[in-house]
């Protein structure tokens, strides 16, 4: 997948889960701030994995364990960028 589309696609996935318009999701917003709870986050990760064909090492018991920062929209985009690059091919 063209890496340029990652920000837009990730934002769309997060917005969909948060029941918001993608335009209303600021890049510096926290996931908590846009109303995503722990279940919502798990669903977002599933959608991200399916969309980008990657595996996101995420354990709800210890969200930081996978070494990923999933606190803001921007940090999720960065995490997905890293995983797509690392798991390419």
């Amino acid at each position: 997948m063209n890496t340029d589309t990652i920000p837009e696609t990730v934002t769309r996935i997060l917005a969909e889960q948060a029941l918001l318009d993608p335009e209303d999701v600021a890049r510096d917003a926290t996931l908590e701030g846009i109303g995503l709870d722990s279940l919502g986050l798990v669903e977002c990760i599933f959608a991200i994995e399916e969309t980008f064909d990657i595996t996101v090492p995420f354990n709800a018991n210890d969200p930081e364990a996978g070494g990923l920062d999933l606190t803001t929209v921007d940090s999720v985009i960065e995490a997905v960028r890293g995983l797509v690059k690392a798991q390419a091919g």
Binding site: V42, I45, F58, N59, A60, N61, D62
Partner: peptide, 16 residues
């Protein structure tokens, strides 16, 4: 995403 891949460490700070 609630299963541990390492073991069940109930009540331990390291539980995952």
């Amino acid at each position: 995403r609630v299963l541990s891949q390492t073991g069940c460490r109930a009540f331990c700070a390291s539980r995952d």
